[in-house]
Design a protein around this nucleic acid. Structure first.
Length: 299
RNA sequence: GGUUCCAUGUCCGAGUGGUUAGGUACCGGUCUGCAAAACCGUUCACACCAGUUCGAAUCUGGUUGGAACCU
């Protein structure tokens, strides 16, 4: 019998992941699980490039447009949801396709992520208040008190991470560092991880064009419709912040669009950097990708 | 044609005789819970030509380019 196999398709934004995933899923007659931290939200399909009905080619897509913008979500929650879905799909199929560019989500799904307590609103709020009044130095001292190990090795300029390590330590009642380093879990299925490579000039060209298409498709109106919710993390997204600046009058329409293109390129580069050190990933050229999948699955 | 003003790295932008502005992009990197987040590193200048000076991005003259106003 065939070993259950998860085919993970990732790559920089605008590299053509979604289309490839649909091709593969159709060929294998299975579903797609989206691994995208923004497409999971409802209300911003244009700016997050959610595939249209036609683009989905009849393939069922999971974990897409399923949460209100206010909802909290994380890599760990994604791991749980994706594993549960995969298990369900594997009951009837031998394959499942995962597609997305959210680096940490893919890492959590493939390699697992340590179990951490969910930080309560009370802990988070009170820490936030004190941080505001006492400042970064105080926060660092607190971290040192609660978790010397993490204090030693953390990037102390990255206050977001300092804050998180501290809030988890407080919530757990033990150092954050003591909660890490769990064993890499064994997944009950084979994982094939592919990264779509594209020449940088070509990728950048695709990004620029895609942003233009988004504008034509109603990007600005879409962002206007969520203007009242600005400030939410789900809207701290390339393509949304720049249009907010345009509404504020800080940028002209053209400047805003150019900046979206620029920031999308920056994001694509981050994705490339992240995956460049993943030794389990296979880099494939976009035009060779489908052939490589067939080869790997021994057709 | 005349008068005045301007000319700084990809872009924005400070400096007005003598140590790195800064930001941003590019390039490179970090990453175990909001990750399309957050953070870090390197590189890149003083429009051009003369002159003054121990020393000029900074002062003087000219050249080129630009802006505003006048005719």
């Amino acid at each position: 019998m065939i070993e259950k196999t998860m085919i993970v398709i990732t790559g920089p934004t605008a590299s053509g992941k979604s289309a490839l995933a649909v091709d593969v899923a159709r060929e294998l007659d299975t579903d797609i699980i989206s691994a995208d931290s923004r497409q999971i939200y409802q209300g911003i399909p244009i700016v997050t490039a959610v595939p249209t009905f036609e683009e989905r080619g009849g393939v069922r897509h999971h974990l897409m447009e399923m949460l209100p913008l206010e909802a909290y979500y994380s890599a760990s929650m994604f791991e749980q949801d994706a594993l549960r879905l995969a298990e369900e799909i594997f009951r009837e199929r031998d394959y499942v396709v995962v597609c997305g560019g959210s680096m940490m989500y893919i890492d959590a799904l493939c390699n697992g992520i340590d179990e951490l307590p969910t930080v309560s609103e009370e802990v988070r709020k009170s820490l936030m208040m004190r941080h505001i009044t006492e400042g970064d130095e105080w926060l660092l001292e607190e971290l040192r008190r609660h978790d010397e190990t993490t204090w030693q090795r953390i990037d102390r300029k990255n206050i977001k991470r300092v804050f998180h390590a501290l809030e988890v330590s407080i919530q757990a009642g033990r150092p954050y560092s003591s909660l890490l380093g769990g064993k890499k879990p064994e997944r009950p299925f084979r994982i094939i991880k592919l990264f779509i490579d594209r020449e940088r000039p070509e990728l950048f060209e695709r990004i620029n064009k895609r942003v233009e298409r988004m504008v034509e498709a109603g990007l600005i109106e879409e962002v206007r419709s969520v203007l009242g919710k600005r400030g939410l993390n789900s809207l701290n997204t390339v393509g949304v912040k720049e249009i907010f600046s345009y509404f504020d009058g800080d940028l002209s329409r053209e400047e805003a669009i150019a900046r979206i293109q620029k920031n999308t390129r920056v994001y694509a580069k981050k994705q490339m950097t992240w995956f460049s050190r993943d030794k389990d990933i296979e880099h494939v050229k976009s035009e060779e990708a489908i052939g490589r999948v067939r080869q790997l699955l021994e057709y």
